[in-house]
Design a protein around this nucleic acid. Structure first.
Length: 229
DNA sequence: GCAAAGATTTGCT
DNA sequence: GCAAATCTTTGCC
């Protein structure tokens, strides 16, 4: 015990896992809980640096009635985890090339989830950039994003930067020992200024779903997705 | 069994 | 600003 730390709690090495109760709440409330929280990815082999990002953009998909949701046609092999326990990861492939990460919300059997659309890199930026590097059909390698704060500025980019694919479906993001998990916002982080607007890329759902203000962003973040800005 | 569209990103016009 | 890339899932015959 040194004089400089006397009277203060010792520095915490382990962060608390994300509280599952915050995700079993109504999804629109859970969305606000998730903004400012951290997405953490450990490299199982310990080769790459630990990747951490601050969640700044999410979208809610709620119930079978929501015609924009993958759950609209009832449980299928693809979407069945949406009908299960909150805090579980649901990852799907869109357009045959990009993966998207969702956090399941609400208790079973209500199918709901939050799509993680963008995060601000906190640490492990080099690992994120190298994970994003891909050989394109042209034979060229993408640069992994021109600016650090854009490295995970989109739902497909979050998965690319964090090395997430469909094999992550079913992981418990509230388990502190999971290689992919959520962590509560750092204690001294100010509460983010949250703005809502309609979800992106779901015009096919028709009204009223297309207009529901179920996209949540941290106002002013430089890491918001391009289409959603 | 086949055709169509998709919770996106990128590069070129 | 627009279209290509790419393949899984769904809808219809």
């Amino acid at each position: 015990m040194t004089p400089t730390t006397a009277g203060r709690p010792p520095p915490r090495v382990e962060r608390a896992s994300f509280e599952r109760a915050l995700l079993s709440a109504p999804t629109l409330d859970a969305a606000r809980s998730l903004l400012g929280a951290l997405l953490v990815r450990d490299d199982p082999d310990g080769i790459l640096e630990r990747r951490v990002g601050r969640i700044v953009e999410v979208e809610a998909y709620i119930g079978m009635e929501d015609q924009a949701s993958h759950a609209r046609m009832g449980p299928t092999p693809r979407n069945e985890v949406m009908f299960g326990r909150p805090g579980i990861a649901y990852v799907y492939l869109v357009y045959g090339m990009h993966h998207c990460l969702n956090v399941v919300t609400e208790d079973a059997p209500i199918p709901a989830a939050l799509l993680i659309r963008a995060v601000e890199p906190v640490s492990g930026i080099d690992a994120m950039r190298s994970a994003r590097a891909r050989l394109r059909p042209s034979g060229r390698v993408t640069d992994g994003g021109s600016a650090d704060h854009r490295v995970a500025a989109g739902p497909g980019l979050v998965c690319a930067a964090f090395g997430i694919d469909r094999s992550a479906t079913g992981l418990d993001l509230c388990d502190a020992s999971s290689p992919l998990r959520l962590e509560a916002p750092p204690p001294h982080d100010p509460a983010p200024d949250v703005v809502t607007n309609p979800r992106v890329g779901i015009a096919y759902a028709g009204e009223p779903w297309a207009s529901r203000p179920w996209r949540f962003i941290v106002a002013g973040s430089p890491s918001l997705s391009r289409r959603g800005r």
